[in-house]
């Protein structure tokens, strides 16, 4: 499974009041609240390309392999947990310096799309939301 053409995704942005270097370092420091490693009961973390991580929280294991570690702009790693049902999902975090702040964008993507062009960004979520809204309103109408 290639990491490049994934479209089912969660995309979140935050503006963090610090330099991109500080935010990048904070994202990899298990002592900093908010990064995924900080919530681990047991943690193994080796944030270099082809380095692995393993962490558990409430007995839920998470595994992954770092595929890009480029200070201070980008971190990319795979992500597997019981929630990904055996799929190797992909997490990309980018850090863009904006004045004194850093625009941080996290994309958690899970599946390749066979539509090569992918002109419709966020098509999956739109599709799912639209359909489920349709059916939920349909169910409501039935009651």
């Amino acid at each position: 499974m290639s990491n490049s053409n994934r479209t089912i995704e969660v995309r979140i942005e935050r503006t963090i009041p610090a330099s991109s270097g500080a935010v990048f370092d904070g994202w990899l420091d298990p002592k900093v609240p908010g990064n995924p490693w900080n919530m681990a009961d047991k943690l193994l973390l080796n944030p270099i390309v082809d380095g692995f991580f393993y962490w558990t929280t409430e007995r839920t294991p998470h595994y992954g392999r770092f595929t890009e570690v480029n200070r201070p702009s980008r971190i990319e790693h795979t992500w597997m947990s019981p929630n990904t049902s055996g799929l190797e999902s992909n997490v990309t975090v980018t850090f863009q310096q904006k004045g004194e702040d850093t625009l941080m964008t996290l994309v958690h993507a899970g599946l390749p799309d066979t539509d090569g062009g992918r002109s419709h960004n966020g098509g999956w979520n739109y599709f799912l939301d639209k359909l489920l809204d349709h059916f939920e309103s349909g169910t409501k109408n039935q009651h």
């Binding site: 935050r14 994202w27 908010g34 990064n35």
Partner: peptide
Amino acid sequence: NERLDQFEDYF
């Protein structure tokens, strides 16, 4: 969202 809220709050 919960993770990044905490991360932003920290900074």
